[in-house]
Design a protein around this nucleic acid. Structure first.
Lengths: 203, 203
DNA sequence: CGAGTAGTTGAGCTTCCTCAATCGCGGTGG
DNA sequence: CCACCGCGATTGAGGAAGCTCAACTACTCG
């Protein structure tokens, strides 16, 4: 039942992927799927779990480019352009991923008109999202960046949600340091722009 | 002759656009084409001139999302997604732009398989580019950001080129201040990573 | 209780920003 | 030819934001 639901929401129907020769692979939490600089070999789609793409810096800092969960694909731009991956990808929970070889994926893409349309829309969304993100990175201070991250994260503006990330994770998302995040969050709280309940962040 | 050449390099052939009802419009240098927050009404493709998309900040700071020149289109993600523009666009030279109404563009897109393929590739390139850009924004200091901007700007790694921007423009590209750019550039020069000839930057 | 992990706090430092003054050079009018 | 202007580039001094390092607290799990 759950499986069926996910199947419907997936970018590419799982059965169709299997038909074209895709295989499943399990990844442990913290396992790396590909490294920045590698050439893409596969199309990846998440069956279950959660993946993040991120960049490392020399000083131990990280920057998270994006989080992806069930039904979503990741790393497509590099695959389609045949360029080196611009970031690492890592399972942040135990995950199952469906992979399809580059060659078969390209054949499939050639064959499936609707898939190309879906992908076009998806890539537009990614560009759009990255635009607003870059803007925030370039122009906003820590407080505004953090708040924007929270409000972007919750789709539904009406309901309050609990932010399911540690301060360290938030820091990595935004290219900030954990102490900066902590201080900015306590400021946001004092300004009444967020709520803290039992140390959990409510937005 | 020149016209024909541009036509070939254009995302969409100019004659085809005209066939679908596109019209030409002139923009003066510094004229705004659309504002951040507006809903897209047209597909825009540059016939001649140069356009930049940028965000404003309260303190007079700016951030340039991208530069576009002859044959390129801009603002497509918002148009295709039917969402508000995430940035302003402005002519930075006197320019001629071909515009096609949203409705006609969508009809055209539905009709032209090859166009969708081209657009998909283009959107992948934009995502890719924005990924490396965000990484730099989040993790690098001013010197590295500036150097990356220069090397990204020149396609051909072998030949040296003159950077055709003022320090202020470079600052706007990167969300930095002009003084920071000046100091970083003179540092890069002392480190032998760039050359300065007659106050022009050589990379 | 003890270990482990997330969160917190303070002090000092670095990077970049802000503001203000100045320089260099091409163009213009007298 | 020269004084003057405008604009981009430059420099210095002081300030603010965020980083670094180190110590310490709070909560959870065995």
């Amino acid at each position: 039942m759950l499986n069926k639901l996910m199947s419907q929401n997936a970018l590419i129907d799982v059965n169709l992927l299997i038909l074209w020769g895709a295989t499943f692979k399990k990844y442990q939490k913290n396992e790396i799927i590909f490294f920045e600089g590698e050439m893409p070999e596969f199309y990846f789609q998440i069956e279950s779990g959660c993946i993040r793409m991120f960049n490392d810096a020399q000083n131990g800092k990280e920057f998270t480019q994006g989080l992806f969960s069930s039904g979503q694909s990741f790393g497509e731009p590099a695959l389609l352009l045949n360029k080196k991956y611009p970031a690492n990808s890592e399972a942040i929970k135990d995950s199952v991923i469906i992979k399809l070889s580059k060659v078969r994926f390209n054949e499939m893409l050639e064959d499936q008109v609707e898939l190309r349309k879906k992908l076009l829309t998806l890539m537009c969304e990614r560009v759009y999202q990255k635009s607003t993100n870059s803007k925030s990175l370039a122009l906003d201070g820590a407080e505004e960046r953090i708040l924007r991250f929270f409000t972007n994260f919750k789709e539904d503006v009406n309901n309050k949600i609990v932010i399911p990330f540690t301060r360290q994770e938030i820091a990595n998302f935004l290219g900030l340091r954990i102490e900066t995040v902590i201080r900015a969050i306590s400021k946001l709280k004092n300004e009444g722009r967020i709520e803290i309940v039992k140390n959990k962040i409510l937005v």
